[in-house]
């Protein structure tokens, strides 16, 4: 094992109204690694991702980002809002529904947190934002407002917005599920580029072929339990369990990879 894991999840459990959605989940993500979380809907995969940046609070277990525990401070008490905000700023999150802020232009969506959370000057934040918008191919739309953009364009801006905080880890929560099929490719293309650049990423997705192409590790969740954790080639060609085999048969690749 190399130095500190970028994300380390140990014995995580979470229930909603008495229903256990995550049961004793453990997972390590090494720096530079891309991990895909697969599973049918209701398997708990989005909840797992949302626990990583404490949008959901797990009932048991602990999560460390770069060795530092999130949600619980050194004294064992729940983190203050301020401490939590500091931890969250190390994680970039991309949502299924984009969640851009409609009253701000594309550029301001990207600069807002660097200026008002990290305390960057406007000029620094804009320089950083323009480089990222360039990277996701949205630089020419910087003055537009979100409602004028297509879903794919919105998601690319959302990716730039998350990257602008220079996070240690990027979390993707079904980033293409809300997109029309013809727009999926442009977003997956951007994520694939990021994986080549060595970003550490955890993604929840339904795009099997894509997961196979970009992941270093594939995790399969079923009813809140990790039942397989393996290299993509092994996972897709030689699944260990019947459950995964059945899942792969149903989830035939829908969209060609980029």
């Amino acid at each position: 094992m190399p130095e500190t894991a970028a994300v380390s999840i140990r014995n995580l459990s979470k229930s909603f109204d008495g229903t256990e959605v995550l049961r004793d989940v453990s997972l390590e993500v090494q720096p530079g690694e891309v991990v895909s979380i697969l599973g049918s809907s209701g398997s708990g995969k989005s909840t797992l991702l949302r626990c990583i940046n404490w949008l959901e609070q797990p009932d048991r277990g602990d999560i460390r980002i770069d060795g530092d525990r999130i949600g619980v401070s050194d004294t064992g008490k729940p983190m203050s809002r301020r401490e939590l905000a500091g931890m969250r700023a190390r994680l970039g999150m991309v949502f299924q529904g984009f969640n851009l802020w409609p009253h701000l232009s594309v550029l301001r969506n990207v600069t807002e947190a660097p200026i008002h959370v990290q305390g960057l000057s406007k000029a620094e934040a804009e320089e950083r934002a323009m480089a990222l918008l360039e990277k996701v191919g949205m630089a020419d739309k910087r003055e537009q407002y979100p409602y004028t953009l297509s879903g794919g364009q919105k998601q690319r801006v959302a990716i730039a917005r998350a990257l602008a905080m220079q996070p240690k880890v990027m979390l993707f929560d079904e980033p293409t599920s809300a997109l029309d099929p013809e727009l999926v490719g442009e977003v997956l293309g951007v994520i694939k580029d990021l994986s080549k650049e060595g970003y550490t990423m955890v993604l929840v997705t339904h795009e099997m072929e894509f997961a196979r192409a970009v992941s270093d590790q594939v995790v399969f969740l079923d009813k809140g339990i990790i039942i397989e954790k393996s290299h993509p080639s092994e996972f897709f060609e030689n699944p260990k369990t019947d459950r995964v085999r059945r899942f792969l048969e149903i989830e035939a690749p829908t969209v060609p990879t980029v």
Binding site: R88, A113, R161, A162
Partner: peptide
């Protein structure tokens, strides 16, 4: 949630 995830107070 997007704002919380970005560390806004």
């Amino acid at each position: 949630e997007a704002a919380i995830a970005q560390g806004f107070s």
